[in-house]
Amino acid sequence: MKRYGILILLFGALLLGGCVSEETFEDTPEGNLEALWQIIDERYCFLDYKAQAIGLDWDAVRLDYRRRLSPSMTRLQLFEVLCGMLGELRDGHVNLYCSADVGRDWSWKDDYPANLDHEVRESYLGTDYRIAAGLRYRILDDNIGYAVFDDFSSGLGDGNLDDALYYLRLCDGLIIDVRGNGGGLLSTAERFSSRFTNEKRLVGYISHKRGKGHSDFSKPMAEYLEPSKRLRWQKPAIVLTNRECFSATNTFVRNMQQCPLVRTLGDQTGGGSGMPFNSELPNGWLVRYSACVMYDAQMQQIEFGIPPDIPCSLDSADVARGRDTLIETARMMLRK
């Protein structure tokens, strides 16, 4: 009998086990809507927060948008309905991609003044500025360093930062203009901001979902900004912000606000503190959604942006004279 023991054990395990599979939905308008609703319901990280902040009722959204479906609707009509449903989340990190379009909610920037005139900004850079992997910089007439960084996915490396900061080392202060920067790599945001602190600083917390419930979150993990072991900036610096500062740029601004010689000036950032993940629908459309929550150092949500230390708006009269109010204000403060 003993010799058959192992066979009995194997058979028992076979009965216990089974095929691991996921609930599937039909590739129909209703099936795709249900699949999308479920992805957000189980994986999106801001449902509780947005219920409080903007009165989001995700169950009601489902019923509301199911009513807009019809079996005979076209592919693009379905796309429109699903994008409308995602728009209720008011999250720039939430997108739906089909071959014809990208569903998006850009109210975080479109609903606010830009506080940026690209033509005027380019006039400050002139034509003889330097470029280090997307970081454009020069020394202004009053010996203030000015650096424009439009994209955190540009591959800015330590060597680029060394060269740029060394070139600007004799300046009385530094303006870092990240207006219009929609984000990129968190690692670049961390690398850049690590040049502005001489000690390890708590800059925020990060948490992820541990289950399908709206409140199933991991214990927030503290995020620290370690000082770079390379060239570090030791003079006052001002970061210029507007509502287009989103995602990794939002994180950069969060980190920079914890650095003692740095202040932020301009408008509130656009937010986007959720780290986006991807999923997909039965019809193959790609979905992007916020999966991990990033907080500031006081454990406050920064999904809808970070207020500046010094609020400042672009004056249209200044623009007419070819002046950027934010740059001029920052120059004046750094000269003091």
């Binding site: 990280c45 992820h208 979902k209 991991s218 991990c292």
Partner: peptide, 8 residues
């Protein structure tokens, strides 16, 4: 983890 990023 369920929603844990490799970044974390």
């Amino acid at each position: 983890g369920y929603g844990q990023s490799y970044y974390e």
